[in-house]
Simulated assay, not measured.
Amino acid sequence: MLISPSTLRSFTEDIFKAIGCSHEHAVLAADVLLKSDLRGIDSHGVARLSGYVRLWEKKRINPTPNIQIVHETPTTATIDGDAGLGLVVAPYAMEVAIKKAELYGSGWVSVRNSNHFGIAGYHGLMAVEKAMIGFAMTNASPLVAPTFSSERLLGTNPMCYAFPAGKYPPVIVDLATSAAANGKLEIAQRLGKQVPEGWIQDKEGNYTTDPHALKTGGSLLPLGSDRDHGSHKGFGLSATVDILSAVLSGANYGPWVPPFVAFLDPPNDPVGAGIGHFLGAMRVDGFRPIDEFKNHLDNWIERFKSSATVDADQKVIIPGEPELEAEADRMANGIPLVDSVVEDLNQLAERFGINKLPRV
Rank of each mutant, 00 (worst) to 15 (best):
S6A: 11
T7Y: 03
R9V: 00
F16P: 15
K17V: 01
I19S: 03
C21T: 03
C21I: 02
S22W: 10
H25C: 09
H25D: 15
A26N: 02
A26G: 02
L28I: 12
L34W: 01
L34R: 01
K35C: 14
D37R: 08
L38M: 14
V46A: 07
S50F: 11
G51I: 11
G51H: 14
V53G: 14
W56Q: 13
R60K: 08
R60W: 03
I61L: 14
N66M: 10
V70L: 14
H71V: 08
T75A: 04
G86E: 09
P91D: 02
K99L: 09
A101E: 00
A101S: 04
E102F: 03
E102L: 06
L103Y: 02
L103F: 01
G105W: 00
S110A: 15
H116Y: 12
Y122I: 12
Y122H: 15
H123L: 07
L125E: 10
L125I: 08
M126G: 10
M126V: 08
I133Y: 03
G134L: 04
F135C: 06
M137Q: 06
N139H: 02
S141V: 00
P142G: 07
V144S: 03
S149T: 03
T156C: 13
P158Y: 04
C160E: 03
Y161G: 07
P164R: 02
P164D: 04
V173H: 01
L175W: 02
A179L: 03
I187V: 15
A188G: 13
R190Q: 08
G192N: 04
K193G: 03
E197Y: 02
D202T: 06
E204G: 08
N206Y: 10
T209A: 07
H212P: 00
L223E: 06
S225N: 08
S231W: 13
K233C: 04
F235A: 05
L237G: 09
T240R: 05
V241I: 05
V241M: 04
V241E: 01
D242R: 06
D242M: 11
I243M: 09
L244I: 01
L248F: 11
Y253S: 12
W256I: 00
P258D: 15
A262V: 04
P266N: 13
D269Y: 09
P270I: 12
P270T: 10
V271H: 13
V271E: 13
G276R: 03
G280F: 00
V284A: 01
V284M: 03
I290V: 11
K294C: 01
K294Y: 00
D298R: 07
W300G: 03
E302T: 10
E302M: 12
R303M: 14
K305M: 10
A308M: 13
A308P: 07
V310Y: 13
D311K: 14
A312M: 10
I318P: 10
I318W: 09
I318G: 05
P322F: 00
E323C: 12
E325A: 07
A326E: 08
D329M: 15
M331S: 15
A332K: 14
I335Y: 14
I335Q: 14
D339H: 05
E343W: 00
L345D: 11
F352Q: 03
G353V: 05
I354F: 02
L357E: 12
R359A: 07
V360G: 15
